[in-house]
């Protein structure tokens, strides 16, 4: 196996709340790896820490603990000055393209900006490459002279993707890139991301709360709950055989756009607890339909399910009690 583009070991991020000794535990000991050319989907509800992880792996937020190894190099502690040249190999696409682009710059300059910062090309080389990039994201060349206020959300997201691939990065982190877009536009952007992936072989970390979207684009998926990975598996394995009770209920809460599809509903009680006071032991136990008394005292470790790539962190796996009883409703 080739060495991974990104390895994250025991990543933790705690944000201070302003009160001494009280922290928001956003990320609590997360391990991840992404192979070259691989797309890793990261799903979880709001407050599960997925955006914080996405930002931390690019050092856009400083991790409290843990290690980030990018392309074989430990970048956890290196100073910003040494970080800068590495940033051409790691790019990010944000959820809201309206606030991600400078409204006073022309689209052409926005696309050329990363090349100016990182590649040291001449002006004419940059101009040629800008037109080429606009082509690759299917943006008509006349848009290059306009400003962001003249473009729709889908077109702006294409601009953001063009910026992200301008420096031929090894890793692109995409934080909910299609969540603010209408359904038909979302489909176009997913198509585009797939093209980009096949052309550039860049690895992608695709963050989303929408299981349907993640399923379409990811090779592998990690499921997060309260800042911890509860399950990771290849996409088809996760959907056919979810092992963690949280993954099972998350999958069952997804509504396929097909009235004939039967739903297996395990609706969870309550809502995600506050990350300030994490529940002891297994953090999911307060909402878990199969929790036992011992879940309060022990922190779950990863268990292999079938293949080596499928792991779930649930204390009920050894005794086989991790399956939620099937109940069917129309």
């Amino acid at each position: 196996m080739t060495s991974p583009v990104l390895t994250v070991e025991n990543l933790a991020k705690r944000f201070p709340t302003g009160r001494s000794g009280v922290f928001v535990n956003a990320v609590n000991g997360v391990d991840l790896t992404i192979a070259p050319g691989e797309t890793l989907g990261m799903v979880g509800e709001s407050g599960s820490g997925k955006s914080t992880i996405g930002r931390a792996v690019l050092r856009l937020t400083e991790p409290t603990e843990g290690k980030i190894i990018f392309d074989g190099r430990d970048i956890t502690k290196i100073p910003e000055g040494q970080m800068r040249p590495l940033r051409r190999d790691m790019q990010m696409v944000f959820q809201d393209p309206w606030s991600a682009l400078n409204p006073r710059m022309r689209i052409g300059d926005l696309i050329a900006e990363p090349m100016k910062l990182h590649l040291g090309l001449s002006k004419s080389e940059r101009e040629n490459k800008t037109v080429d990039l606009a082509n690759r994201v299917h943006l008509r060349p006349e848009f290059l002279r306009r400003h962001s206020s003249d473009l729709s959300g889908g077109q702006l997201q294409r601009v953001c993707i063009a910026r992200a691939i301008a420096t031929n990065p090894k890793l692109i982190v995409l934080d909910e890139p299609t969540s603010s877009l209408d359904l038909s536009v979302r489909a176009e952007i997913l198509d585009l991301l797939n093209e980009i992936r096949e052309q550039t072989h860049a690895a992608m970390l695709f963050i989303s709360h929408d299981l349907g979207t993640v399923k379409l684009i990811s090779d592998r998926i990690v499921v997060l709950y309260l800042g911890s990975v509860v399950e990771s598996a290849r996409t088809d394995e996760l959907f056919s055989n979810p092992a963690h009770p949280y993954s099972q209920s998350l999958l069952s809460a997804h509504l396929p756009a097909d009235p004939a599809a039967k739903l297996e509903r395990h609706v969870l009680k309550g809502e995600i607890p506050s990350p300030i006071n994490l529940p002891s032991g297994c953090t999911f136990r307060t909402r878990c339909p199969v929790a036992k008394d011992f879940c309060e005292h022990e922190v779950p470790k990863p268990h292999h399910i079938g293949s080596a790539e499928h792991q779930a962190n649930c204390l009920r796996i050894p005794d086989g009690g991790n399956r939620i009883a099937q109940t069917e409703t129309a």
Partner: peptide, 28 residues
């Protein structure tokens, strides 16, 4: 859902994650 008639409805249903073919055909 079973027999969408209008071209717009067809494209909408074809754009849902369940029906979407990545890289398949022109989108509306």
């Amino acid at each position: 859902f079973a027999k969408p008639d209008h071209p717009y409805t067809r494209s909408l249903i074809a754009s849902t994650p369940e029906k979407l073919q990545i890289g398949g055909g022109a989108k509306l």
